[in-house]
Write a protein that binds this DNA or RNA. Structure first.
Lengths: 187, 187
DNA sequence: CGCGCGATTGAGTAATTTCAAATCTAGTGG
DNA sequence: CCACTAGATTTGAAATTACTCAATCGCGCG
């Protein structure tokens, strides 16, 4: 039934059926429509979300009103305002749907409970966090050492499935350039 | 004896004396001198390092030969080529000392062992990883949404202890601007 | 004292932004 | 099925920002 969840977790750890029962019981399934917000600015962040279907983004509006994309999320990716979630603070980042989406979510309390009851799940989330860290580090290096064109080509190569689902202006914002500049890269 | 290590870990988890014995037995203490490398490019990365004394940096040399600072590390900070370490791959990042340093290090195998034997330590490293992720996310936002001057002022405010230990040209590289630009900010 | 390292300054150049307008496209309601 | 519209992309031109290259300056350490 919760086949998606099971497969996702078993890419990293092995769980018994009983253990998985507990895991599944702590996740809730939710559906959202395009342009709908999962998290808006300045609100408590209860959950982190694992995407089963659809595309989402997390973004930050700066003091001049410009939107900066922190993250895209495709199926099998996690998304939230992780800073606010882990510090149990108010959000400074918004999360919304680029396409209709179906997600599994888990609350801070339940995540904590899960990690305490089943240490293997704590391992799962440590590994996920490590890889998230590594990905962000790569992105910082890319922002600092590469031209807009190189960053765009790397993006296309690294996430070939994204281009068909995400408007170019959002990709521009993710890459840290204006949409005009991105548009001019191949002209 | 390993008082530093104990204090550092107990900021996040509580360990019994026996548990701490095991922890301490898996860390090794090392000393390095200014300009000495802990990790050089294209080598296996055996360890991650917790700084007791001194200042270090991790940096990446791009295709044009320019150095980009990924991270500084002061006492109580961890440093390594985390990407290479967690993927057990060759380093693409170098780690070296800005000042003479004393560090505790632990190998991949021992870290794994520790997390398996004492689940609380896995929690410790998950929390550390989460906070590392959050810090990198903040840095990405800063790189994308702020001017060089704002980034510099944020840096000074966020890490007031660093300015006395780290040459401005390295700070410039960390902030993603040329040393000349940083020098011109207040003129 | 001299050398190496770090910081500064100047001038010209390259890259990207901003603002404005035009064009293209996909989805929606009639 | 078409027309309309909002969203997305492209293009142009001017302005801005930061970079590069080069030279100079300052200083602490051996």
């Amino acid at each position: 039934m919760e086949d998606f969840l099971k497969k996702h977790i078993q890419e990293i750890i092995n769980l018994t059926d009983d253990e998985f029962e507990m895991v599944a019981s702590l996740f809730r399934k939710q559906k959202f429509r395009k342009r709908q917000f999962l998290i808006q600015e300045n609100q408590p962040v209860k959950d982190i979300y694992l995407i089963e279907k659809g595309f989402l983004k997390s973004s930050f509006i700066d003091s001049t009103g410009k939107e900066h994309i922190l993250q895209f999320a495709a199926p099998n990716w996690w998304i939230s305002d992780f800073a606010a979630f882990f510090k149990q603070d108010l959000s400074s980042v918004a999360v919304d749907c680029i396409e209709n989406a179906e997600v599994y979510c888990i609350s801070y309390k339940d995540l904590d409970l899960l990690c305490t009851k089943i240490p293997k799940t704590e391992h799962f989330f440590r590994v996920k966090s490590n890889f998230g860290y590594i990905a962000l580090q790569q992105r910082i290096l890319s922002l600092m050492s590469k031209s807009a064109k190189e960053r765009y080509e790397d993006f296309l190569q690294q996430y070939p499935g994204f281009i068909d689902h995400i408007p170019k202006q959002l990709i521009a914002s993710y890459l840290g350039v204006s949409r005009e500049t991105l548009s001019r890269l191949y002209s």
